[in-house]
Design a protein around this nucleic acid. Sequence first.
DNA 1: TGTGTCACCTGAGCGC
DNA 2: TGCGCTCAGGTGACAC
Length: 272
Amino acid sequence: MPELPEVETIARRLRKSLIGKRVVEVRLSGLPLRKPVAADFASRLRKRTIRHIRRRGKYLVLEVEPQGYWLIHLGMSGRICYDPTEHPAKHTHVVICFSDGTELHYRDHRRFGLMALHDVASLDQIRELQTLGKDPLSRGFTWKWLWLLLQKSSRELKSLLLDQHRIAGLGNIYACEALFRARLHPGRRSDSLSRQESVRLVRATRKVLREAIRHRGTSFSDFVDSDGQRGDHQQHLQVYQREGEKCRRCRSWIKRWVQGNRSTFFCPRCQA
DNA sequence: TGTGTCACCTGAGCGC
DNA sequence: TGCGCTCAGGTGACAC
């Protein structure tokens, strides 16, 4: 389930491999992803060269020349395989061939991902990115900014953390982990947090994301990076998918709670 | 306008 | 072994 750390891991790997590569062929499965891939996607991407790769929230943004931005979202089960040794695996929806003979494959068995090419002069002109909230690893993600955001909403805390229009990059795993580390109950009303609690939440969020990036993301069943390597962060999770196990901090039992159709894992004592 | 709910999708895991 | 059911969750559409 690619969230910010997994997408950042992929972006870092691809930066080493793809910068300067020229696209010579694009093959599509024809099956729609979250939205259908544009009919002219292949012809427009062909003959372009990759100049820069960055991440915006959970989006991978590949800057190409002549001027354009190739946007990839991995959804829930998207995988990028750079230069695989075998033929395209099942559920491969996009194959990009480069002039040096290497290939990039996009696989996504649930087809919740997104692939698009935007011929615009600036990232600010891309609708998907315009609506994204603040990146938790950006300088602007301060306790004051977060506290003001929280004060404007009566939503449950975890629901707000998952809202990509407000905070871009957190998913279910890291929202649960950040709330545990900040000792905050996921069902708390956002506007009930004090300034001090907002400070704790900002610190916890940044810390958990940075640690996960250092461990190359979290791998359960789906995530591998562009070289096929699994992440290690699942060994460091404190609450996520640990229902019925003991809290590593207070030895209470970790609970699972279905919140907005999503499983929330928390320690009822540490996060009272 | 803000908030909550649901559908989309398919593989994995489980019980029978 | 095979079948059917449930669960997983990012996103956008929709209802209230």
